[in-house]
């Protein structure tokens, strides 16, 4: 039981985030009105995605160094869970932008570049499917994964900072932290990050365990 405490923590934090996130009195920021509550759900998704992709690329490099198929399983699980959270982040963002920007897919640089980054990772998942040889699949997809991560950073970190975005906090749209004088939103936001990231790690470990069992069956079954 002792090592499962973080799973309980995740559930409790997320319950708090969902209840408080929808009921707490938030300051009205610009034209966002009540839609600012999306902060508790949209932004943590990207943190989860980054966490999983980082795990994935570390294990890919580790695989190339050791040629241990279990490392490849961890890398692939990180990739697919990262894509799942990336897609959810994109969906929550698109839903929010439909009502605040007046269009689901607008010409916003952050939206475009994350769209490209997600396509790159979807190609990673397709690439994995196209091999039947386990070792070859592991080696080639590990190499592609390093490429994908090397492009993820400039795409989602460097380019969006060079140009103006419609996102709150950049260019002319007001940021959240300056208006949130009582730190009401921050009191929900930080637990939300921790809760969601723990949940994504939880899903990731489940997937790793399942895939490892499948590999064991394949090799010794």
């Amino acid at each position: 039981m002792a090592k499962h405490w973080w799973k309980f923590l995740s559930v409790i934090l997320l319950l708090y985030v969902i209840i408080a996130g929808f009921s707490v009195e938030i300051p009205v920021i610009g034209t966002n009105e009540q839609s600012s509550r999306n902060l508790f759900f949209h932004v943590p998704m990207w943190m989860c995605m980054y966490a999983n992709f980082t795990i994935s690329v570390v294990y890919s490099v580790w695989y190339l160094a050791t040629n241990d198929l279990r490392k490849d399983i961890v890398a692939s699980s990180g990739g697919s869970v990262g894509v799942l959270f990336g897609l959810m982040g994109f969906a929550t963002g698109a839903l929010w932008s439909t009502y605040t920007w007046g269009g689901t897919i607008v010409n916003d640089p952050k939206q475009l570049t994350t769209g490209i980054a997600l396509t790159i990772y979807l190609a990673y998942l397709v690439l994995r499917q196209s091999f039947t040889d386990l070792d070859k699949r592991a080696r080639v997809s590990a190499i592609y994964n390093v490429f994908a991560f090397a492009l993820l950073i400039p795409l989602t970190y460097i380019i969006p900072r060079m140009v103006d975005s419609l996102h709150p906090g950049s260019a002319t749209s007001p940021g959240f932290s300056s208006k949130d004088t009582n730190h009401v939103m921050m009191r929900v936001f930080y637990p939300a990050i921790i809760g969601w990231v723990l949940l994504s790690i939880w899903i990731f470990t489940l997937r790793v365990r399942y895939k490892k069992l499948a590999l064991k069956n394949l090799l010794h079954g």
């Binding site: 490209i116 979807l122 190609a123 690439l127 196209s130 592609y144 994908a148 492009l151 795409l155 380019i159």
Partner: peptide, 10 residues
């Protein structure tokens, strides 16, 4: 094409 087109987009 599957791998290349997403990577070449930026």
């Amino acid at each position: 094409a599957i791998m290349g087109f997403p990577l070449i987009m930026p």
